[in-house]
Amino acid sequence: MLQKQRKLILDATGRDAMRRAGRVNAMLMDYVRPHIKAGITTGEIDEMVHQWTLDNGHRAATLGYQNYPKSCCTSRNEVICHGIPGEEKLEDGDIVNIDLTTVVDGWHGDQSETFLIGKVSDEKREVTQCAFDCMHLAIDALYPGCSVSTIGETIVPEAHGRGFSVVREYVGHGLGKQFHLDPSIPHYPNRQSRIDRLYPGMCFTVEPMINAGTRYARCDKSDGWTVRTKDGRPSAQFEHSVLMTEDGPEILTQCQDGPHKGHEFKCD
């Protein structure tokens, strides 16, 4: 396993390429941000993502990936992840996760945000806040050479302490010239994550999916992608691409206009 991990360690050129991919992806998130409001369809969001990506000379990593049909994922309310954009309109009271991955000169930038649409319930706001806080707490806990399990060991007690659960079936991943690489980045500690280490030069995602109710999920058999909470209660997620450096973790996908660490989510 250590040999496999060494293959993921980037030199200075690779690190700069990943920084650029992260910046471009964050610019795309900021581009769509003002349009994420009641009345827009998730399909219209996808069209904006697709056109901006093409206009800027890049490629959407999700489009055609294992036959996925769209250029982004839009996961609304009880949808945990992999929601397929379509004709559904965002409504006041919704939360929706927008997940973007852009391929820039062969390198992947990957991130997601959960947006509050108008006046949402306390439960939806609180689970969104928890997902955001868990992501940043986990990133802040990392250091060069730490075990991957540091992420789950930080997230699980925080989420459980707030009365929420952590999805286990879907995890973060290594990132580079491929969309999904070793090591797997679970948001709960397990045997393998206690073995795997995060060395300087490794890129990976931290993307906790936090459920208001049970942690269990079910995949929609009709499309093979959409993953919902088993109890129908809301789920929220945030994701950043992270580069481990000799000085600690560096977030590659921080938006200029988006929420930064310490942000408090409030209803419109």
Rank of each mutant, 00 (worst) to 15 (best):
V167G: 02
C134E: 05
H173R: 13
R215M: 13
A236T: 00
M202K: 10
P144Y: 01
I185D: 05
K37H: 08
Y199E: 06
M18Y: 03
T245S: 07
H160T: 06
H82M: 14
T214H: 07
K230S: 02
M18I: 03
T101N: 15
G232F: 07
R162N: 08
C134T: 09
Y170S: 14
E239N: 07
N97M: 08
A138F: 10
C146T: 12
I40F: 00
G174N: 06
G232D: 05
H82E: 15
L63Y: 15
H240A: 12
T114F: 08
H82P: 07
I36P: 01
M29Y: 09
K261W: 11
L28S: 01
L175Q: 00
Q129L: 03
G93A: 07
V96S: 02
L10E: 08
T253W: 02
S112N: 09
P183T: 03
Y216H: 13
I80P: 02
C219A: 15
V156E: 03
K37G: 04
L63R: 14
A217C: 13
L28Q: 08
T13I: 06
L252Q: 06
D11N: 10
I9F: 09
N56P: 02
H35T: 09
F115D: 00
E88A: 07
A61D: 09
L54V: 14
K37P: 03
Y143T: 11
F179G: 03
P189K: 01
S193T: 09
V167N: 06
W225H: 10
R125S: 03
K261G: 03
H136I: 04
C255N: 12
A131D: 04
T154R: 04
A159H: 09
Q256L: 11
K124G: 01
C219M: 15
L137M: 11
A60N: 13
K4N: 15
G43W: 05
R6Y: 14
C72A: 10
C267K: 09
E87C: 10
E44D: 12
F265Q: 06
R218V: 14
E88F: 04
D99A: 14
L181I: 08
Q111F: 01
Q192E: 10
L100I: 12
G57W: 07
V120P: 07
T53G: 02
N97T: 11
Q256G: 05
P189G: 06
G152C: 08
P189C: 07
M27E: 15
G39F: 13
Q192Y: 09
V171D: 06
G83V: 09
G201K: 01
M202E: 12
I139W: 04
I45M: 07
A26P: 03
D55M: 12
L90C: 04
G64Q: 07
Q254H: 00
T101W: 12
R125H: 04
Y65H: 14
I98N: 01
L10D: 05
C134K: 02
